[in-house]
């Protein structure tokens, strides 16, 4: 958050704590789910924000670019919002396996098939209703270009596969 580093340590310094802290209603219940609740300080709201701003709702078909922590948080946020199909794209097999472990469809961006073709194999058409960019500036190309950094490639590919009138969420995570 701005210049304040961290939020998942044993202790943190909270600026303006009288205003922006979230009080857990019951300590016992909170401690039982502290691993989940800890993520409220950072990646979960960010990923969820991406899903909300992409217009994810009940029955949506959504594509999440990037299966890092924010991307995975976004994917699980899409499920919470009722998405019918959550497709997650990444280049790292372990991340894709993690996304698959909680019910997402996955796309390996190292493959030479285009993003649209891979989406078509999953949902029958090469388009999704909404998409979320959880990659950021340090994006890489697709297929053969996977080793080359191409900052604009994610947004361009999202526009390509998102249907007309669709929404794109681009949450910020610094």
């Amino acid at each position: 958050m701005g210049g304040w580093v961290g939020g998942q340590a044993e202790y943190v310094m909270v600026p303006y704590a009288d205003f922006n802290l979230l009080r857990f209603p019951d300590k016992g219940r909170a401690m039982a789910k502290i691993k989940d609740l800890t993520l409220l300080s950072d990646i979960v709201p960010t990923g969820f924000h991406g899903a909300v701003t992409a217009g994810v709702g009940p029955g949506s078909i959504v594509y999440v670019a990037g299966a890092g922590p924010v991307g995975l948080a976004c994917a699980v946020g899409c499920q919470l919002l009722g998405a019918a199909v959550v497709i997650v794209g990444d280049m790292i097999p372990e991340r894709l396996a993690q996304a698959k472990s909680f019910g997402c469809e996955v796309i390996d961006l190292k493959k030479d098939a285009t993003l649209g073709q891979q989406i078509e194999q999953i949902v029958g058409i090469p388009e999704v209703e909404c998409a979320v960019d959880c990659v950021g500036f340090e994006a890489r190309g697709h297929g053969k270009d996977a080793v080359v950094e191409r900052p604009a490639t994610v947004l361009n590919s999202l526009m390509t596969v998102t249907q007309a009138g669709g929404r794109l969420g681009i949450p910020d995570f610094m």
Partner: peptide, 28 residues
Amino acid sequence: LGWAKSHVFTTGQCPVMRYNRQLMHAIL
């Protein structure tokens, strides 16, 4: 391309407090 397909783009830093309480309840 985005213009031709009438896409809506939304970006910016996440307003964490807009979601915190509801997400906390969903977790609890």
